[in-house]
Nucleic acid binder design. Structure first.
Lengths: 343, 343
DNA sequence: ACCGCAATCCAAAGCGCTTTGGATAGATGT
DNA sequence: ACATCTATCCAAAGCGCTTTGGATTGCGGT
């Protein structure tokens, strides 16, 4: 069912039918009602490609998934962020498009998406320190939003981020207040911007307390369960093991917990644990009492907000850049307690 | 940069340029080389909407994410399935599109996607028993593939599924062989087809062993960590608690493990556990020795295969339907052991 | 020298929609 | 009664591409 078929059927011109359906004023209200009724009856839906060609908009927003050639790691927060975003997109009439690109061609992927006219804007996820993609998108002068920020990039750009530094600063202080002195950090990959900020917060808190950071207690890698387990196991076997561990992800925290159990220790008594909790829908941090003491910030909500900000940007490309910094809340669960009196 | 601009620049007609770039034979090879060089140099990329309009294809494949209004549960396997699929799509020149729909309008969402000409095919995920969407898509005579199957739907359709029944049959037999008699099943939502098949396998094994199923030991809900924890806790508090637990998801298995620990029991000695492992990239089941004994089947690979099958279907819409049944492997880890001699 | 054929190229139509620039007719104003 | 609006509708162009149906040229064959 095309516009022309519908208009023939109604004895009207395509022009009028188009206007009737798109809410233009130059059409009689009774005619409009007739048109709408017929459109509904026959299930007419304008072809989005034709519409896009005519209007110059695609009403699609793009996300590029990097398929790190080796690891093929799929970020576990991906699903929740997307779920938040897609909801907002749908409400505003946008569709969401994914493309996959390996690390070397990721810039090419963004360029292709735009120059083909496939999308009206993109979301940039998982920014690294000195993220190159930001300047690429900036130069293309294309609407985009960054989920996270990038230290070292001076250009103005829209972003939404959690206050990683302050939340890890606070979490570390919390542990220090409990008397812990040997606090480990199991962090994400070091070149990721969020990981660097979290480390900064951690280091700042240690510095305030006059504690020298110990490289042995600072680990970083992709945040899988197995990684958390492995690093914890290794660190607990040190001559002078940590009494508290700070972890950048709930997933890894589960591995940490497993290692603590295996070592015959008790989490919250022998070893305190604080994790960053993205509030994933399938991995709730307990129901009444949180399992882990955690710095919590919903990544789904971040997805929603990011989508809204991007849509705003698409509407007014020349508006001043906007940013949004979310504060994580510190929820206290049963995984933390006073430092054990070992000596 | 449009086709016309490029052709003007080259002193050729749009026809010839189009043909040169699309590999048609009626163009001189030296001309073709010239055109390709110019296209590369100026970064020309055909507008995909215009191309789609002209060819009648969108080169996009659609996925609909149901946002169950209440739970807003995002399936944790989602990310990996998508990662597998999008890789295949990209290789074949397809983009991937998401739409969100609440449970009531999900059928509408599929219809809209096609009638707007937004996609060339769709993937149907998470089929329920008597899945209504299958007949809807069938009637629309539209290319689609189901990830999973639907008991009660007689129509022929393409699907790829894990052999849920046989894998849970085998897992249950494995536990029975270890001497377990009170085996619990922590399953997914009952109306999901996979959950029903897994239960069938479980029940079949019990029946073979002459054991009457006990409703008290069979639970079903959305497979979160907290759910696994809660049900295990409840069951372990029974007068006659299970000695083994079968779980439909690694995520929930983590909660199960937590409950076992909290009860002061040891997994693999006091309580045996087998989980279904989708081989998620961020939740590997251990590295050398698996943590959980598990029925394993990579959902990422399923995504890849599904994508390939769908692309085949799009190419030849009238070919006979194809199906693919993957067998899960039973990997034996440290979470299972002989039934404790309690009495 | 003439015909047929292959190799190259191009003009123009068409995909389904929006939008510009009228046309038409009845209503209004003086 | 005549010019002027206003409300309503339509024809046609255009978005950027593919594709049909020729044109044109040069070559071998007779």
């Amino acid at each position: 069912m095309t516009l022309k078929e519908l208009s023939d059927m109604l004895g009207l011109s395509p022009t009028t039918v188009s206007r009737a359906l798109n809410g233009y004023p130059e059409v009689n209200e009774t005619t409009r009602a007739r048109v709408q009724a017929a459109a509904a009856k026959h299930g007419y839906r304008p072809n989005s490609r034709a519409k896009g060609l005519a209007t110059g908009k695609s009403m699609v927003i793009g996300h590029v998934i990097p398929s790190s050639s080796q690891h093929e790691m799929v970020n576990p927060i991906f699903g929740d962020f997307v779920a938040g975003a897609v909801k907002t997109y749908t409400e505003h009439g946008y569709d969401m498009m994914f493309t996959n690109a390996d690390d070397t061609s990721i810039e090419e992927a963004y360029r292709s998406l735009f120059q083909r006219g496939a999308v009206d804007g993109v979301v940039l996820q998982g920014p690294k320190v000195n993220e190159h993609r930001i300047s690429v998108l900036s130069k293309m002068s294309v609407p985009f939003i960054v989920h996270g920020r990038s230290t070292g990039v001076d250009l103005p750009y829209d972003w939404i981020d959690v206050n990683n530094k302050s939340s890890f600063l606070r979490a570390t202080q919390f542990l220090l207040d409990l008397g812990h002195r040997r606090i480990a950090l199991i962090n994400g990959l070091e070149d990721m911007d969020f990981a660097q900020r979290r480390r900064d917060g951690y280091l700042a808190a240690l510095a305030q307390a006059g504690i020298a950071p110990e490289p042995n207690l600072m680990r970083s890698a992709e945040m899988t369960e197995v990684y958390g387990h492995h690093e914890t196991r290794t660190m607990l076997a040190l001559d002078d093991p940590p009494t508290a561990i700070l972890i950048s992800s709930m997933i890894s925290a589960i591995g940490v917990r497993r290692a603590i159990d295996e070592a015959g220790l008790q989490m919250g008594r022998d070893v305190s644990v604080i994790a960053h909790d993205d509030d994933l829908s399938y991995l709730k941090n307990g129901q009444d009492v949180p399992i882990f003491t955690a710095t919590r910030s919903s990544v789904r909500k971040a997805g929603e907000i990011a989508a809204n900000m991007l849509i705003e940007r698409i509407k007014s490309p020349d508006a001043p850049t906007k940013t949004r910094l979310l504060e994580a809340e510190l929820v206290v669960g049963r995984s933390t307690g006073p430092a054990p009196n070992r000596y």
